[in-house]
Nucleic acid binder design. Structure first.
Length: 109
DNA sequence: CGGTTGACTGTTT
DNA sequence: TAAACAGCCAACC
């Protein structure tokens, strides 16, 4: 494990801990998770952390959506699985593929 | 060291 | 409402 990796770990841990705090049936945006983790403006870093997670992770990675309420597109079956998991807990994207943030956004408290 | 990438976002067309 | 744009910055190459 190199020095750079070691330095980045606490940041990663804060991000993942924040994701882990999103309750069932709610969602948070990437930017929201970043701010909540004390890293304002680093939404893309949140995405990178989630990308590195194994899909079978115990973390509720599926509760993170983009600022438009959409499931961020990426290669592979991730988006479909994310939609499945959200629907299963009562968070259903509308016909345009958007989660109603006014209703489902986690208030962070 | 410099250039590119990207699970992003707010502003402007 | 949606697309384009600009700003962002760690991670990679």
């Amino acid at each position: 494990m190199g020095p750079r990796t070691r330095a980045a770990d606490p940041v990663r841990q804060r991000i993942l801990a924040t994701v882990d705090a999103i309750p069932r049936g709610r969602v948070a945006t990437y930017g929201q998770v970043a701010r909540e983790a004390g890293l304002p403006g680093r939404a893309r870093l949140v995405g990178a952390c989630l990308r590195d997670l194994p899909q079978r992770s115990a973390l509720p990675w599926h509760r993170v959506v983009n600022a438009q309420g959409r499931i961020s597109p990426r290669p592979g079956g991730g988006p479909a699985e994310q939609t499945r998991r959200l629907v299963r807990e009562g968070v259903r994207p509308d016909v345009r593929g958007r989660v109603d943030l006014a209703r489902f956004r986690w208030d962070g408290r």
